[in-house]
Design a binder for these strands. Structure first.
Lengths: 273, 273
DNA sequence: ATTGCATGTAAACATCCTGTGATCAGCCGG
DNA sequence: CCGGCTGATCACAGGATGTTTACATGCAAT
């Protein structure tokens, strides 16, 4: 049997233009005039912005939950390349624009290769810089899952993004915020998700090697799911790979001989010859 | 039957990284020298590239299944803005880089607002342009994988990258992660693969001399394949060389005289349906 | 046919992966 | 300030997986 969903996602996007959360931008620079003008303009556009006159630690940047970072390498000093690399490596979802004084082709190439999304040479027009930021963020945003705000029922579980909670009938699963986000992500994907993928999408930055957080949350989810909806299994482990969400009624019936393992869910479209 | 496959993967590591299909880039420009240099460099990087000296229709661009488009507005002429808008609107997944002569801030702002992902001013260094292309494409690719991983059926078995598993009909082969990766790699290649090659692509590093791991896994694969799909043979040994994947119905009846061995698979030709 | 490798097969062994429970630190409202 | 809740991290155990070894078999060249 195929999984039942009450609300199909709108195939093409378009329709549910949900108000996008305001852009969060940080600027690491020291030119007061430039910062002032930029701040004004960003404010007008409705961005939350923050100005820093010295490099922030990666952890700080993570905590700020930014969409974009504008960076003058001159402020960072000699270790600016490592800094850039660290930030881009740890926050793959962050749009990083280097905005700095005159540079050589080699420097620009290096910066972009390390993960920067754009490079503006000072002096530059604030409006143009803002456009570059917007262009970079636009790209990043496209990859966020088309957050569907409509409720969906899968198996016995109803997911209510508007309430940040899941239910079986009237009964709440009492999920915490993070638990809910993981459940929602899994339920939206029809495939095996690797831990790194889950972590990156939910936590917003790259998973450290050996981190078990995802496992622990999966366990909590299973616990709550099992408690409220026994004789269904929802989250399946793919050993050495990751987890996959698929509601399946418990087979009370035992193995007829070699047990046929779970059949392959049918393919989405009519691909394949 | 037509097997669909992607182009050979660019060498490089494998295990943690997923194999990415080659980049497809088109350039609309008229400067022969510039095009030449760019083409060389793109070729070296393993990109498929195509040069156009006049604007292509949106339909044409769609048909080319591009990842990135480099565009000199001067080539388009007066209606370049509408053209840019049309292309960006219709192909939101395409990275568009405008690479054109001197311009005003207002023009660059306009271009970026219309949806361009980057703006390079000519004359520019080809390497820098390429970095900008890569930066623009980078994010698009990050989560685009599910598209690429289409299921393929070869012989009796169906390979489902989204589930990290292979099936015959509804029945799973119960492959482990590594077994699946090897099967997938073999099935994607239409040629004999040396052990070292297999090892390097799947394990991600160089095979130690005398390591038999690949053999052992091939054995396990054959075992599972035979169990679930008898009277087909899939993995063929090339003595002193390596292994080759090719589904072949078992010949029950034997040799007419010297028996013609397996007929040579038709030559590559322009494969694909 | 005989010899030297290359490969197939099977089992023992070592390692890694995951599930689980417990503990600890930070945050917020009372 | 405290208590309750959430999320991070740890240690351990059991099982699944991957690696290595040893021996049997098969191929190719002398």
């Amino acid at each position: 049997m195929s999984r039942e969903r009450t609300d199909a996602q709108p195939g093409g996007q378009a329709a549910p233009q949900r108000a996008q959360p305001r852009l969060r931008v940080a600027v690491i620079d020291r030119d007061p005039g430039f910062m002032q003008v930029l701040a004004n303009r960003l404010g007008t556009l409705g961005c939350e912005h923050r100005a820093l006159s010295s490099p922030a630690t990666v952890e700080t940047l993570v905590a700020m939950r930014l969409n974009a970072l504008v960076l003058d390498l001159a402020v960072i000093g000699p270790e600016s390349w490592e800094y850039l690399e660290r930030v881009c490596g740890r926050l793959p979802g962050l749009a990083v624009i280097v905005c700095t004084g005159p540079s050589s082709v080699a420097q620009r190439v290096r910066g972009l290769r390390l993960g920067a999304d754009g490079w503006m040479t000072k002096p530059c027009h604030p409006e143009e810089l803002i456009c570059v930021i917007e262009a970079a963020v636009r790209r990043h945003r496209r990859h966020e899952l088309p957050q569907v705000d409509v409720a969906a029922t899968i198996g016995e579980i109803t997911i209510r993004p508007d309430l940040y909670q899941a239910y079986v009938g009237e009964q709440s699963l009492e999920l915490t915020a993070r638990e809910f986000e993981i459940l929602q992500l899994l339920a939206q994907s029809d495939r095996v998700l690797r831990r790194e993928e889950i972590y990156e999408r939910v936590w917003g930055y790259t998973m450290a090697h050996g981190d078990r957080s995802v496992d622990v949350f999966i366990r909590k989810l299973r616990q709550k799911l099992r408690a409220i909806s026994p004789n269904w299994s929802y989250i399946h482990t793919h050993f050495g790979v990751g987890y996959r969400f698929a509601p399946e009624p418990e087979e009370l019936e035992l193995d007829r001989a070699g047990r046929a393992a779970e059949p392959a869910p049918e393919l989405p479209a009519a691909l394949t010859p």
